[in-house]
Simulated scan of single mutants.
Amino acid sequence: MKKGSLGINLTAVAILVLSLYPFFVMLVSAFKHQMQIYENPWFFSMPLHMDNFSSAFEQISRPIVNSVIITLIGIVVTLTASSTAAYAFAKFSFPFKNFFYTFIVMLLMIPGFVILVPQFINIKNLGMYNTLIGQALPPAASYTAMGVLLMRTFFEGLSKSLYEAAEMEGARDVRIFTQIVIPLSKPILATVAIMSGLQIWNNFVWSLVVTSGDSVKPVILAITTIAGGVNQGDGVKLAGYIIASLPLLILFFAATKPFVSGLTQGAVKG
């Protein structure tokens, strides 16, 4: 191995260790009471206190369920709106097609805080304030623009012979879309689902603005109010952070392959 390559590898390993070590400290601290954190903050110390996790779970179990429901609603709305709009842009020709597509893509450049107040007014007028669906719909609408961008490119990359063969067999657009395009588009659908799901799950500001009670509070807000006993201290909070991140970790590891494949195919026209 050349000296230059060895130096690059060692540097990469050092950067990896420095990047992951804070997460390791959080993990080991989640098993400690407050005095153990003060006495040995950098590594495990005995005994391990599993009660931190049970205390944290009792406080955020309901918010986790709320977040799962909110995220699922948002993903379904985003995928439905994105896929149907992208299919129309990819397959049909109609007046001002490029103008409308450009207008949708331009929405990606609008900062979220600019439309925060109009969104809040609309949700309140529609009677969706302090509801789960009120937390899901505006973020889903915002992430639809990215979905249209990725899906249109992917749909245009599909072989035109598929559309032509289906039309020759008498299939209408709805059947072509649901039975041919969608089954072939699982990678890009997974990509958009993961990207929108992560954003909706972690949308702190919108949930803070549009909720006022504990009944519909998502986990992203609930983890800020986790509290433990005098002896437990910050260990309960750190345990809560770990529990709250588990659904996202499971989603990511379960869909890593289609996510990477869909992101690549949706970004570059094949």
Results as ranks from 00 to 15, higher is better:
K3G: 06
G4D: 07
N9A: 15
L10T: 12
A14H: 04
A14Y: 00
I15P: 03
V17A: 08
P22R: 13
P22W: 07
F24G: 03
H33C: 01
Q36H: 03
W42Y: 15
F43S: 13
H49F: 10
D51P: 00
N52I: 11
S55G: 05
A56T: 13
S61T: 05
N66G: 01
S67R: 11
S67I: 10
G74K: 10
V77Y: 08
T78K: 05
T84V: 15
K97N: 09
N98R: 11
F99H: 07
Y101V: 02
V105S: 06
I110H: 02
G112E: 13
G112S: 12
V114F: 14
I115T: 15
I121T: 12
I123S: 10
I123H: 01
N125P: 01
L126A: 15
L126H: 01
G127T: 11
Y129R: 10
T131M: 14
S142H: 13
S142W: 12
M151Y: 02
F155I: 07
F155W: 01
S159F: 00
V174S: 07
R175N: 03
I176L: 11
Q179R: 14
I180W: 08
I180V: 14
L184P: 00
L184K: 10
I188D: 05
L189G: 09
L189A: 06
A190W: 00
V192F: 07
V192T: 13
A193K: 04
G197T: 12
G197P: 07
L198D: 08
I200L: 06
I200T: 12
N202R: 05
N202I: 04
N203R: 06
S212Y: 07
S212H: 07
G213E: 09
D214F: 03
I220D: 08
G229N: 11
G229L: 03
V230W: 02
Y241V: 13
I242K: 07
L246Q: 10
L246N: 02
I250Y: 00
A255C: 15
P258I: 06
F259A: 02
T264C: 03
G270L: 02
